[in-house]
Design a protein around this nucleic acid. Structure first.
Lengths: 255, 255
DNA sequence: GGGTTGCGTTGCGTTATATGCAACGCTCAT
DNA sequence: ATGAGCGTTGCATATAACGCAACGCAACCC
């Protein structure tokens, strides 16, 4: 809509691939060097872009700070966190919280496993959308046409033999998840890792977030992990209640 | 430099404070609503801004993804991580990696303590610059005039009784840190938490990053933590060697 | 239920503003 | 020394961003 801003913002994903010098930026934007320079300078003033010692540009620190603040302002996250921590206390495994936004699913909170073997994931990292249990829950709640559109636009990387292979299979899985009200990922992303997930709903019943418990095979088998399902669902329901205002937050200590 | 981009980018920190509607954004930018609308639309197209169900705008998911990618492209981080993990294996405490950029110090990596009591911190969060051990190391390496300018511009919040109280005290501390080549934070940020830190240097000897080991009093006393100093310095030196190309990366397993 | 207020949204003419050019200056390597 | 390559500057032109005013649409209140 606004050409100048559009061009300036296009620089960010470009730099996300790695540092680049003025010429490279100008070329990839298809503009004159002087134009690119002015845009970069503006981005620099706002701290979104940093000029390293070899004169090349890369993404700046303000970006982290912004992402950080944005995260801390998410109210679901704030409400959910103590519940996630409590669940982690009880079962010891990694607990994740994720939301859907504009075609992406991303983790917004994580409580680390207390077992020495830990899985790799990071807050803010987009989730493997076709296989993750939380992603299935979040997508399953979208209106059917949107679900179809998204499913057909997605790619289906075969992380493992049990990954969702294509759109029809994914849509079938979403229907199942929608009906049963919970989801799993049994080695669909990494061979040895299983997850159980449950939805968190707002006052209107719409799914606003999803949470999951994940553990590697070497710690517990898939069957053992599934025995945690009731606990996970109860936790998710508690969060839903508090989020939608039905249940006031419980004080952890009396006055 | 570029008015339009400048205005658009000013929206981001504004939204970081919390969601806002069109009118609020327009007012705070001092522009007409239609102008604000166009800017917001452009930001929206790039995913930096999200429109929530109540029509208000807040920061978008792309921001997380960008910050994430930016972080993973930092080569110091990549080189340092296995060393940090190894140190954590040996001592069990929380290990941090931080860099300086344009007046801010921020954590770019963290390996969690293996003790049940953990300190609060998050990757990407700006560090308490006047007290953190890593911050002292990074600032101590700046040229003297810059150091002074920064020190005088800073605020000195008294987190605890042992926090750095003002600019002169801070500058004195920096001089000391610069000479001894390592730094500590003994309860300067949180009463019960101590840190020991060492600098990571590039080929030209300039400090490019700093790493620290942190632990609460309840786990180890400050004196006990200080006995780890040689290990911390050795780890930092190993990273420096690898980063500056002097030492080739060691294979963890043979062929 | 009609009127009103408070939003977001649209189209348009004007003018400020971003643009590309060409020339300059610098560093580095030949 | 000399050239190539890159970032930087000033400037005239034209484009694209601006504010305005009018519209559409709710919600709200009398």
């Amino acid at each position: 809509m606004s050409q100048t801003v559009d061009r300036a913002l296009s620089i960010l994903p470009l730099l996300a691939e790695g540092p680049a010098d003025l010429g490279q930026v100008a070329d990839r934007l298809g503009v004159h060097k002087s134009t690119a320079l002015r845009l970069l300078r503006t981005l620099h003033e706002h701290g979104l872009v940093y000029r390293q010692s070899d004169q090349r540009y890369r993404l700046g620190a303000r970006l982290f700070a912004l992402a950080q603040e944005a995260m801390e302002n998410l109210d679901v996250r704030e409400i959910a966190h103590p519940h996630l921590a409590r669940l982690n206390e009880r079962c010891g495994h990694t607990v994740h919280l994720a939301v859907y936004e504009e075609g992406e699913v991303l983790y917004i909170d994580k409580v680390e496993s207390r077992y020495p073997v830990r899985m790799y994931s990071r807050i803010g990292k987009p989730v493997a959308i076709t296989v993750a249990a939380v992603a299935k829950l979040l997508l399953a709640d979208l209106p059917e046409p949107e679900r179809r559109t998204i499913a057909e636009r997605l790619e289906y990387p075969l992380y493992t033999a049990r990954s969702t292979p294509n759109a029809p299979a994914f849509l079938r899985e979403l229907t199942k998840v929608r009906e049963q009200g919970w989801a799993t990922d049994l080695g669909g992303h990494e061979e040895s890792i299983n997850c159980v997930a449950a939805p968190i709903r707002g006052a209107d019943g719409r799914v606003v977030a999803a949470m999951s418990v994940s553990a590697p095979n070497v710690v517990v088998t898939a069957d053992e992990l599934l025995t945690l399902l009731p606990q996970v669902r109860r936790t998710a329901d508690d969060i839903s209640g508090e989020y939608s205002g039905r249940t006031p937050a419980k004080d952890t200590v009396g006055p």
